[in-house]
Design a protein around this nucleic acid. Structure first.
Lengths: 201, 201
DNA sequence: ATCGTAATTCTAACACTGTTAGGCTTTTCT
DNA sequence: AGAAAAGCCTAACAGTGTTAGAATTACGAT
């Protein structure tokens, strides 16, 4: 039997593909092995368990979305930057629904790799809130607000949980305006020098 | 062998208990049968499948949360009503995490029973938005905003996905202020008479 | 070139799921 | 009391993730 020439990286990438095509729940040891053209037990040479595959998918997703977002949002006015941040995240998640589902498990595993993958996002966020004169204390709360909304909204969309026929994109647009306008009440109340960077959400 | 004297209702209630104690993922045919003191196949006399159990849990949750919320929020000023709505939902979900997880699947099954269970919530929502002079069109968008944030935030909390040690309740409080302040930009722009009631979200 | 070793894939088997088939008791109704 | 239905059981099946261990393939040094 000829070898498949697999590597851990390729396994994860294929898993990402499969998850995006058929949903994360479809990714099992069986289906993934099939998709890779090998037998189930052979997978365990590259990966420790199914759970580890999901964990890697999570890191994979946050790494990619961080890169995309940070690269393209430098130099925007804070409000616009935050709006575009929302849209970029949204488009990535809708375009990669399976990987997004895995991203939801962030912090379930306390890995260093995760901190590295998202460090750029934190910097970006606190950069904007600093420029808006928002306390670091509040900025941390607002980050949770933003994250909760984004992940919640996209999860609902992916699960087809919006029954109403009105435009989902329009709902998302309105929601961003709500958030951006809502945080104005906390602007220009903060110190110049933030407390600590590299916070977890 | 003496009978357990079970009924469909009791099975669902026990499933809810189990889900809240150990998490929804812990609820399986095996564990549930064990918890009820019967053998696995006996469950199928009361219930069609495991998926049906989850579906019933979802309806169960929405029914309960609707009742709680609507009963206690009559007569409040709209902004306060919305704030209290958020808190009531939050406390219910945190107090019943397993049932809440099942509630996330809303609209995955297009059941009539679901529409009935949540009808009260819709009425409550549109009652508040009407009084604030918000268009029904916008009110539908805002409902999605609110729902996405609530479900997203609670899901993150339940999954222990907030790594930062700062107070989660305070984050929730700040978030509600964001939402309530944010929607002011859409107030007093609507007609007196709403379009249609009983909309899906 | 060839031998030894390590890397990669395999088959076989295990414990665990949800689910179905069919038998045996207990309850309920006439 | 007798018939019918309801409620629970044991036995078995196909599917899952996972482990053990044998069989190949590839590679590096002699």
């Amino acid at each position: 039997m000829p070898r498949a020439g697999l590597t851990r990286q390729k396994v994860i990438e294929k898993a990402a593909q499969l998850a995006n095509e058929k949903g994360l729940a479809y990714v099992t040891i069986t289906t993934l092995a099939d998709y890779l053209g090998i037998r189930k037990p052979s997978l365990y040479y590259h990966v420790e368990s199914l759970e580890e595959v999901f964990e890697e998918l999570m890191i994979y997703g946050w790494k990619h979305v961080s890169e995309e977002i940070i690269l393209e949002l430098a130099g925007l006015e804070p409000h616009n930057a935050l709006r575009e941040f929302g849209w970029k995240f949204y488009r990535y998640a809708i375009g990669n629904p399976g990987v997004f589902e895995a991203m939801l498990w962030y912090n379930r595993y306390g890995k260093e790799e995760m901190a590295e993958a998202t460090e750029g996002l934190y910097c970006f966020w606190f950069d904007q809130t600093d420029r808006l004169g928002i306390t670091r204390q509040i900025a941390n709360h607002l980050l949770r607000t933003y994250r909760a909304f984004l992940e919640g909204f996209i999860l609902l969309e992916i699960n087809h949980s919006f029954g109403n026929p009105i435009s989902i994109e329009e709902s998302f647009a309105v929601s961003l305006e709500i958030l951006i306008r809502g945080m104005e009440q906390y602007e220009n109340t903060g110190n110049e020098n933030g407390e600590t960077l590299h916070q977890k959400i």
